[in-house]
């Protein structure tokens, strides 16, 4: 039987393992004339949590949104360079965007449940992708997703009530459950706790830590403590450049650059 510490060690080893889930190579992003990212090279290891940190407007959310081509929805946004998922270029014209977004799920800054029932919020993804054959199977997916998102106990008696009626923290966990329900390989989280109070934040952080057993997670955060608590690797952005990337422990104790040092100690940003 594995003890917690051995699991922890194994996971840390995996995080630093070169098994790369997603890879960005010379990624440049332009919003019209304005360039938002400059030649970013960043590898996302599998089954780990990678935190993207940096001051506002540094391009970390932009990079995150490139990973599931959410930037496609912005007309003026143009992406150059390669981003791969398991070695496949996701910006290849032949790639199926719907499949990509199913494999790379996303949780947004502001909880955005559909204005439908809790059940429908979770069932929607599996249903459109045809992942379940029967109602019983769908029920099972809904329950297991809600359980994985640690919200099942709170909502099991009111699955038919609107998802928008939940509290902010519950809504965000519902959104995480919605992302999990599609069985993605990667989950992108764009400041998932910025609209939540400390108690809800703690719950979501605990959840993120558990989720990395099954998923690869990339999280954008403004909170240094959060990055330190939940991530195994951290990448620091500044003014559209990747400043530094490495194991979280090292980043927070002994960063290579003065910029990172100053940012994590709160001297700017």
């Amino acid at each position: 039987m594995l003890t917690d510490t051995t699991i922890e060690k194994k996971l840390t080893a995996m995080a630093n393992d070169p098994k790369i889930k997603m890879r960005g190579n010379k990624v440049n992003v332009f919003y019209g004339e304005k360039q938002a990212l400059f030649d970013v090279d960043l590898d996302v290891p599998g089954n780990a949590v990678m935190a993207l940190i940096g001051p506002s407007g540094c391009g970390k959310s932009t990079f995150l949104r490139c990973l599931n081509r959410m930037n496609d929805t912005i007309d003026i946004c143009k992406v150059t360079g390669d981003i791969t998922l398991d070695g496949e270029d996701i910006y290849d014209p032949k790639i199926d965007v719907v499949e990509l977004r199913a494999r790379v799920g996303m949780v947004f800054q502001k909880p955005n449940p559909f204005p439908k029932s809790i059940y429908e919020n979770i069932a929607y993804g599996p249903r459109i992708h045809g992942l379940t054959k029967t109602k019983a199977e769908l029920d099972e997916v809904v329950e297991s997703s809600l359980r994985k998102a640690a919200i099942w106990e709170e909502v099991k008696d009111r699955l038919q009530e609107p998802g928008t009626g939940l509290s902010g923290g519950q809504q965000q966990r519902l959104c995480i459950a919605r992302a999990i329900a599609v069985s993605p390989e990667v989950i992108l989280m764009d400041e998932p706790c910025s609209a939540l109070d400390p108690i809800a934040t703690a719950k979501v952080e605990e959840l993120i830590d558990e989720l990395r057993l099954n998923f690869t997670i990339v999280i954008v955060t403004h909170s240094m403590q959060q990055a330190a608590r939940v991530s195994q690797r951290t990448a620091m952005f500044h003014l559209g450049n990747l400043v530094e990337e490495g194991p979280t422990d090292k980043m927070f104790t002994n960063p290579d650059t003065k910029l990172t040092q100053d940012y994590i100690t709160g001297r700017f940003g």
Partner: peptide, 26 residues
């Protein structure tokens, strides 16, 4: 709001699903 559109895209909804399941009903 764009957040609804993004939520639907985020779970892999195709264009017509985003429009017919989410945007139009709202």
């Amino acid at each position: 709001p764009a957040s609804i559109r993004e939520a639907a895209l985020g779970v892999g909804a195709s264009k017509h699903e985003v429009i017919l399941h989410h945007i139009l009903p709202l």
